[in-house]
Design a protein around this nucleic acid. Structure first.
Length: 575
DNA sequence: GCCGTTTTCGGCCCGACTGTTTTCAGTCG
């Protein structure tokens, strides 16, 4: 089984960490980190790039990395890795996950005390041995113990949907503090990454110490990690860390740009500044000692002759070049979406009646909705029950004002690629969504054949959550993404971008590739209760991260256009 | 380990905070 991009990236990340722990040249380690990020943000499979012999064309891939990564992708192993890890204990990497512990301290702990796991670190801290080490003391020891405790409670990343409400609450409170001029979320939450490690908030004020002090007293603060004049850091219930930075208002635009990132985007922007003889940092854009005024981010980009780059695009995947050429996409917005697709009712595992769903959809401004309950394999409806449901849909359609309701179904894709509803019944659907739920462990080749077989059924209009990934940490199943996307494009089957915060699937990294292959998209809610209509914003964010415009997305069409489009496609497929 | 119409060798982002230090190292973002 070929390694996924994520696996290759994680491997390279680890090589970088080992090099740092070993005390090698930090720039050598950085080369591996940079390679890891490049692989992670690829819109195509690294195994394909290796097979095509095009790995050395990626930025940051010279002779050594090309050879080592090719070996890794082909054989699943890297001799170099075995060499540099041979004399290190296996658990040494987990030490890096402890707060306030970096490669230098790992090396120190290992060299002096032979510590090679978090358990050993904890024992050493409790015995007081850590405090005796050079450069360490009681406070450092206590901090490390606290870090170990926190790590036990929670590790890793949070869903975007968990972070956004907290982030917005912090902004709302801080905005009202005395002496605060401007406030914004920054970091990965502003870029709308599908998961975030922490919440970044930027504030402009002349009263930094006061703002930070108030921030650390907010409702929900469990622990204060740092509290200075310009920077504060606290852990909020249920364990999400938030960092607040305070700058002068004249620095707000450059600071916001800086703290929004991504790091890769920032590196490119600083380089652009350097090329022009300027200097860009969080405090401003400088020509010598002179600060080039930027009242907001738009003005900042304008200095470079660039169009404003929406935060979602700032991943260094071509947005800088496009902005310089004035060729950025006109990104889709939530208000462009007219149809609520992929809605489950209490006919399967949803909590709400069709009639209530209709009312809820109207209140969110949708003008049509597809009732897409599960089919029999996922404990949903069989052919007979579907027929009965259609009568109920007809009834609600007559009484519900201002909304069109389409007969739909989330049809299960069987292990062999067939569907669990017969064609005669499928013919009666107005929108067919086919999804994989079971048998996710097939090999990549079989999985690919299976999905392509399913989207080849003429009554399938949309491929639901293609990868079956579950955030924050469960990767998707193994299959040839490009082959499936090509099949969808050829058959006119739209690819779902699930707005379910645990899915957000198709992965935005593949969206640009999908569009280039000719795919259309459908933002699906996968709603099971009323509150889930609010998920739309997350689906739209992913579409935006994938550079999509209104015209790329089927449910920006009016109800009538949507029906016509699906109808036309079906006629073509019959012919 | 990568990279180059300023360089094929010598750079590679940099500032805030903390704790341990009498001037700095490590971590983080």
């Amino acid at each position: 089984m070929p390694m996924t991009n994520k696996e290759v990236a994680a491997f390279l990340e680890r090589v970088g960490e080992i090099l740092e722990i070993r005390g090698e040249n930090v720039f050598k380690a950085r080369a591996y980190y940079s390679a890891a990020r490049t692989i992670e943000s690829l819109g195509e499979d690294v195994s394909k790039i290796v097979a095509d012999g095009e790995l050395d064309e990626l930025p940051g891939f010279g002779e050594a990395l090309t050879e080592k990564v090719s070996e890794l992708v082909r054989t699943g192993q890297m001799k170099y890795y075995d060499e540099i890890t041979a004399d290190l204990p296996e658990g040494i990497f987990e030490l890096l996950d402890v707060g306030d512990v970096g490669p230098k301290k790992v090396k120190l702990f290992y060299d002096k005390l032979g510590i090679g796991s978090v358990a050993e670190l904890e024992a050493a801290a409790r015995s007081g041995a850590l405090a005796e080490l050079p450069g360490m003391g009681d406070k450092s020891q206590a901090k490390i113990l606290a870090g170990i405790e926190q790590g036990k409670e929670h590790r890793g990343r949070w869903l975007l949907s968990q972070a956004v409400p907290l982030g917005e609450r912090i902004v709302a409170v801080v905005e009202k503090l005395e002496g605060v001029k401007r406030v914004s979320l920054g970091g990965s939450i502003r870029r709308r990454r599908e998961t975030v490690g922490d919440i970044d908030v930027l504030v402009s004020s002349k009263r930094g110490a006061h703002v930070i002090a108030e921030f650390t007293k907010l409702d929900g603060v469990e622990r204060v990690l740092a509290s200075g004049d310009t920077k504060g850091s606290a852990v909020f219930s249920p364990g999400i860390q938030a960092d607040l930075r305070v700058v002068e208002d004249k620095s707000f635009a450059t600071a916001l740009h800086y703290f929004t990132g991504s790091k890769e985007h920032n590196v490119r922007m600083r380089q652009l500044a350097k090329d022009r003889g300027w200097k860009l940092n969080e405090y401003g854009l400088f020509d010598g000692d002179k600060m080039l005024a930027s009242k907001d981010e738009k003005a900042l980009f304008a200095h470079f002759g660039m169009d404003f780059i929406e935060p979602e695009l700032r991943e260094d995947t071509g947005e800088i070049e496009a902005a310089l050429k004035g060729a950025l996409p006109d990104l889709v917005e939530s208000r462009d979406i007219r149809g609520a697709l992929h809605v489950h009712s209490d006919w399967s595992d949803g909590r709400v009646t069709i009639e209530e769903l209709a009312r809820e959809a109207v209140s969110h401004g949708f003008s049509y909705m597809t009732i897409s309950d599960h089919s029999q394999f996922s404990h949903g409806l069989d052919e007979k029950r579907l027929g009965e449901q259609w009568k109920e849909i007809d009834r609600v359609r007559r009484i519900a004002g201002g909304i069109d309701i389409l007969r739909s179904c989330e049809i299960d894709i069987m292990k062999d690629g067939s569907l669990d509803i017969d064609d005669e019944t499928l013919q009666g659907l107005e929108c067919g969504i086919a999804s994989v739920h079971g048998s996710t462990e097939l090999g990549a080749a079989e999985q690919t054949r299976r999905i392509i077989a399913a989207v080849s059924n003429r009554y399938v209009d949309i491929l639901g959550h293609p990868s079956q990934r579950l955030l924050p940490d469960q990767g998707g199943m193994a299959f040839d993404v490009e082959a499936v996307l090509s099949a969808c494009a050829a058959r006119g089957v739209a690819v779902e971008i699930s707005a379910d915060p645990m899915r957000l699937d198709l992965d935005w990294r593949y969206i640009k590739t999908a569009k280039a292959l000719g795919c259309k998209f459908a933002i699906g809610l996968d709603a099971h209760e009323k509150e889930h209509f609010g998920w739309l914003t997350y689906g739209v964010s992913m579409a935006r991260k994938g550079w999509l415009e209104k015209g790329d997305i089927l449910n920006t069409l009016t109800a009538r256009q949507f029906r016509e489009r699906l109808g036309r496609r079906r006629k073509r497929r019959k012919a």
